[in-house]
């Protein structure tokens, strides 16, 4: 199980590289989104390892915040307002 958590952290570091390096702003947005989903998976695996039920709530909350952030930034890029 530790090996699986280390592999997911390696994936999060890959997306951190893309978020630092990316040529355009959309690269950074999608890299931060993928990094949030990687943190969701890491939190779920930690909840499975130590058998703590409320860490799954934290996993769902990280997924929701990542989705809302990506949607708001895409609306901002298109030039519309947030309630359109």
């Amino acid at each position: 199980m530790d090996i699986l958590i280390i592999l997911l952290s390696l994936g999060a570091f890959f997306s951190l590289y893309r978020a630092l390096q990316g040529p355009s702003i959309s690269d950074r947005v999608i890299a931060v989104d993928i990094m949030g989903i990687s943190f969701t998976c890491i939190t779920a695996l930690i909840a499975l390892k130590y058998d703590i039920a409320y860490l799954m709530d934290l996993s769902i909350i990280i997924a929701i915040l990542s989705f809302v952030g990506t949607l708001a930034l895409s609306k901002y890029l298109e030039g519309r307002s947030l309630d359109d």
């Binding site: 355009s24 989705f67 298109e78």
Partner: peptide
């Protein structure tokens, strides 16, 4: 824990393509 994991899987299955579609369309018009 199992039911929360199922809810999280369903949520990600719905919201992840929506976010990717909105971001690709907005970056095309950007």
């Amino acid at each position: 824990m199992g039911v929360k994991a199922l809810v999280c899987a369903f949520f990600i299955l719905i919201t992840m393509p929506v976010a990717a579609h909105a971001l690709s369309r907005s970056s095309h018009s950007f």
